[in-house]
């Protein structure tokens, strides 16, 4: 297999991670550590598949995967923003819920194929012009529409966070909600909107797995990818373009890991599977030691803001 076709697969393997990582970045930027990503992906994957299976309509399936993710995120938002519950504990509960929900409703679809209309719709499409660029074209522009949607999300998220007033306010809230509110920003509204969109992205990540990446519905669709996404947010130091590189790197590791199993190398396969997490720990330590503020986690990450508490 050529390098270009390997990287083409790595992009595909990293796409679900990329969606979920973008979602988690958005949530963390506004100060909410959501450990429910895995659950949100599961909900998106199962709802997307069921809608796709029943209607055979690809766009409807994707839409419902995204909606399901944001409904799940609404639960999280309600409990952590309005009812001020601990974010870590709420996120973990959401993951337990999402995994249970997906297993419960997905059990009767295990082993079913994605309908042919949907498979055809999400077949790799070569973008005229860009797809003909040697190497880069084959890696990035001979992919499914769903993958192109993820590129669009990266661009939009990067622009939103860096170039718009809304994005600036969002980051402001993550760094200091007290000052943000004093400055006239509606903290609660911003948090809700960001977290709902974040859930949407996680749902899209789950939908990609069940509708495009897998051709048959498996027992556990997401299988821990949501947790890798949480790691990836740190690995990419809260930046959307870096998340893209990181997602494809982790995607490549995933492919290498499964392929190595057949080669009987002296190094353990599991060393490869553990590598993303070890790398994340290293990044976590390095960013903490680094004095530069823009590389750090948002200052209020994981801490609920409540005006009356001051």
């Amino acid at each position: 297999m050529g390098i270009a076709s390997f990287l083409n697969l790595a992009v595909k393997a990293g796409t679900s991670l990329l969606f979920a990582t973008l979602g988690e970045i958005l949530s963390e930027k506004v100060g909410h550590l959501n450990l429910g990503v895995e659950g949100l992906m599961q909900i998106g994957a199962v709802i997307g598949f069921i809608v796709g299976f029943q209607t055979g309509h690809p766009l409807l399936a994707v839409l419902f995967a995204a909606l399901a993710g944001s409904v799940g995120a609404l639960i999280y938002a309600l409990v952590t923003i309005t009812f001020k519950a601990n974010q870590v504990v709420t996120g973990l509960s959401l993951t337990i819920f999402g995994v249970g929900f997906a297993n419960f409703f997905g059990s009767r679809y295990v082993g079913r194929n994605v309908p042919q209309e949907i498979v055809n719709f999400f077949k790799p499409v070569t973008i005229p012009g860009l797809g003909q660029i040697p190497f880069i074209g084959e890696v990035f522009f001979q992919q499914s529409f769903y993958v192109y949607l993820s590129y669009l999300c990266v661009i939009l998220l990067a622009l939103y966070l860096r170039k718009t007033r809304w994005g600036l306010n969002t980051r402001f809230i993550g760094e200091n909600p007290v000052a943000a509110e004093a400055g006239g920003i509606n903290v609660t509204l911003y948090k809700y909107v960001n977290i709902l969109v974040s859930g949407c992205l996680c749902g899209l990540g789950g939908g990609f797995l069940s509708l495009v990446y897998m051709s048959v519905y498996p027992i556990d669709v997401v299988a821990g990818q949501g947790w890798i996404a949480v790691a990836l947010v740190i690995f990419s130091i809260w930046s959307a373009p870096k998340a893209m590189a990181g997602a494809y790197f982790f995607g490549a590791l995933r492919i290498v890991g499964t392929r190595l199993q057949h080669l009987h190398l002296p190094i353990s396969v599991f060393a490869f599977t553990a590598l993303p997490y070890i790398a994340t720990i290293v990044v976590l330590i390095l960013t903490a030691m680094n004095k530069r503020k823009e590389n750090k986690a948002p200052a209020w990450l994981g801490i609920n803001y409540f005006r009356e508490d001051r």
Binding site: F83, F97, G100, F101, F104
Partner: peptide, 26 residues
């Protein structure tokens, strides 16, 4: 009955209790 039903019920109870604690603190 899929055992996941119990996991789901467990999580729903959790989320409600987490939310309800608000009314104890405020």
């Amino acid at each position: 009955i899929p055992g996941s039903a119990a996991a789901m019920i467990q999580a729903i109870i959790l989320l409600y209790i987490l939310g309800s604690e608000f009314f104890l603190r405020y």
